[in-house]
Amino acid sequence: MPDLVTHVIAGYGLQRGFRLTPWFLIGAILPDILTRPFTIVWPGSFWWTMPLHTPVGLTLFCAAIAFLHRPGIRASVFLNLGAGAFLHVVLDLFQAHLAGSYYLFFPFSWHSVEIDLIWPETSLYLLPLWAVIGLWLAVKHFRQRMKAEG
């Protein structure tokens, strides 16, 4: 994965830009939340949690969460969460690994795919850019709030 800052900023930026719901931001970090804690604590659990970082597994997980909501908002929860997770998977694809990348076609194939453009830690060089964008969003948010209150 690129660092979570990249996922959070991309998720939050698109959520605000397209007026999506908070479920989109949750989706944007969901695949790593479901898998990384397990593989960090117990690296041998990789194959157990791997489906939760694939399109089919994530679709099922997003559907499970959507079913916990009333029918009126179920589709919205599913689409926002699923679109966020899709964004996460797309961003992850740009990375390079020496072995074992992303099993996009699971459970139909064990072929792993990635674009091999940057090493997982390279996205850290974008941190100053993310910090500036984060600051700009925060200033914009507070200005809007002050306008609404005043």
Binding site: V56, G57, F67, L68, G72
Partner: peptide
Amino acid sequence: GRPSVLGFLSCLLFLGALCFYSARFGSAAV
């Protein structure tokens, strides 16, 4: 107007089966 527990459990069951399949047969190039 209610959450669908059946839908939720069906998805989790299917997901559990996929995780088990992956743990049992998962295979990397190296």
